[in-house]
Design a protein around this nucleic acid. Structure first.
Lengths: 361, 361
DNA sequence: TTGTATGCGTTATCAA
DNA sequence: TTGATAACGCATACAA
């Protein structure tokens, strides 16, 4: 039976097959009714064309070429190319125990640079021979274990998971339990602290001795805010400034205005506000305009993101911009170390972030 | 040897194994050095615990329960649950010829609702027993075939691909060649035409007889702009209005202002501009303010997105909002039809989009 | 109603 | 230097 199937395959390979799959082991004798696709080439096809065994094909295509004659290697490679052969992830995953995918977990937060981040990481992942796949985290509760992520990891059995901020504590535990590596988890640089401090130092340098921190207050998670706020607080303490006021800003006009009206009596002016992101900064800036505050002399705001919208409005927003490839350096490094890529140097927070001076500070 | 391995597995299953994989077929006699994870349960384990054969397990777990006694079904299900059994995607994909994943292809464009869109579609995909995986398209050229997508499809062999606007013509050809179904491709409603017409009709209804269409002019692809602009043009023709002027707006202040300065002599005022998205509308609105134009009487803009930022600034932006679940109705429907879910009704463009009245029209 | 046998495509071991 | 063979986990046609 096997011989029949193999023989049949010889024919089928060079011919069109049904769009549906035929029964395994059943010779296909009839004419294809709807000739739509060719069955993907397998290592058997390559082996036959190259005149070698499947084992040889496997070795050569995995770059274990030392033990083979140059001629054999060449023949196998040409055959693979000619047939458009691509190793089956399924077969490979089955025998390896895990697949060649890396899951990028994106947090449930707006993220102007997301496409950029994914693009940069995708390139690095491919450099080490793996394939990127993006997963949007949806868990809002800090310690909820995401059923979706769990299922993805259990079925895909990825070679690794990259956390862009979407993982809860339980998610991380889960990954450890099933033995799925979390890329760069333990060497994550404290970027959020760096950002918060950068904002505080900038506001202080522009003459603001009274500071506040503005969180985002909407339906989305805010995976970074607390660390940044802590950094602002630490800066104030270190510099002998009064502790910053914390506020939560809703993303609509009247709500933002109300927040501002409530904070001013408690802080007085001038006041400098470090904001969770550009959107929060814009909301506060607009509210300040309607209240007749002078920006930036009485009321200064600085965002984080360098979103385009902050640069088209008046006053142009002062913000913190990230150098995406640099700020992902620790992940890129871990990827290289864990999966056999070239060694690279890690970036410092100073290299990763910079202030973009606008008109709001 | 097989018996040995099977026996060995019986032991290993209830015990911790190495974090690395042991050699298949090699009994593990030594004590585990680093007892980190248990090997995932297989259908053999479930079969043994339930006292049935692997075939029975497979049938029951695929809901082909008619032919089995209630007792058998129950025993199998309990055993699977007890062992935390998850069927291996690899084994399944290998024998089925394709995996249980659906690839969501996201276009290279800013997208406020992206998280929402992905969340809604993910839910629907799971309803039919498949798993969503997101792929960020990066191809900018209209007819470039994305090497990344190609590789993903070839290795993952997904059950289907959902195009959110990131596929080029060649990508679509490629998918057809390899026989990967493109979900809802042929029944895609013409939402972009609906959006363009909605914008034009709104501006006209607010008293603007002279219209323009503003494209995005930045580094990103603009997969939707042309269709919307065409719809605006068609509307003008149909209503006997002068043909709309097309402009491309860069996302920075001086550039946007220059565009505005160049268009006004050609159109005069009052002028109504249908914009590609909220950001373009904001850029033009701000430029209009600096030129001293009266908004909306002399110069009106309407965006698309209902992005939060448009609602926190002054004047508050008029825009087109999408009902995400409704606007994805055709995809949800196709998913259900193609993969055996519940039948649902398709939404019309009128149900999917609505005008959010702000202060710029 | 249940079990047996086989194949899916890849990799690893060991023999030639 | 190369090849035969045995896993990996699952699904299914077919036999019992």
């Amino acid at each position: 039976m096997r011989a029949v199937a193999a023989l049949c395959r010889t024919v089928v390979t060079s011919v069109l097959t049904f769009s549906g799959d035929h029964v395994p082991g059943q010779p296909v004798n009839e004419e294809p009714a709807v000739p739509t696709r060719t069955r993907p080439a397998t290592s058997v096809d390559v082996a036959r064309l190259a005149g070698v065994s499947r084992a040889t094909v496997s070795h050569v295509l995995n770059n274990q070429v030392e033990r083979f004659s140059a001629d054999t290697v060449e023949r196998v490679r040409r055959a693979a190319l000619a047939l458009g052969y691509v190793r089956s992830a399924a077969g490979r995953a089955l025998v390896m125990g895990r697949s060649d995918f890396i899951v990028l977990v994106v947090p449930y937060t707006t993220f102007t640079n997301l496409q950029n981040v994914v693009e940069v990481l995708s390139g690095e992942i491919e450099k080490v021979g793996l394939s990127p796949v993006v997963h949007f985290s949806v868990s809002r509760a800090e310690n909820a274990t995401s059923k979706r992520l769990q299922h993805l990891v259990e079925t895909l059995r990825p070679a690794g998971v990259v956390d862009l901020g979407g993982l809860s504590g339980r998610d991380i535990e889960f990954l450890a339990e099933v033995g799925c590596p979390l890329v760069a988890e333990h060497e994550k640089p404290d970027f959020n602290t760096a950002i918060g401090e950068l904002q505080a130092r900038h506001l202080h340098g522009r003459g603001h001795g009274r500071l506040a921190y503005a969180f985002l207050s909407d339906e989305r998670d805010d995976p970074y805010g607390q660390m940044r706020a802590d950094a602002v607080t630490a800066y104030c303490e270190q510099e002998g400034l009064p502790a910053p006021l914390y506020v939560r800003v809703p993303l609509e006009r009247s709500g933002a205005r109300k927040v501002l009206e409530e904070m001013l009596p408690r802080t007085g002016t001038p006041l400098g506000v470090a904001c969770y992101n550009d959107l929060v900064a814009i909301a506060l800036g607009e509210a300040a305009k309607t209240l007749g505050l002078a920006v930036p002399s009485d009321f200064a705001v600085i965002g984080v993101e360098y979103a385009p919208v902050g640069q088209v409005i008046s006053p142009r927003l002062t913000t913190v911009a990230a150098d995406v490839p640099v700020s992902l350096g620790h992940i890129i490094q871990a990827l290289a170390k864990g999966y056999g890529g070239a060694e690279i140097r890690r970036a410092t927070p100073e290299e990763a972030f910079r202030i973009v001076q606008g008109e709001t500070t």
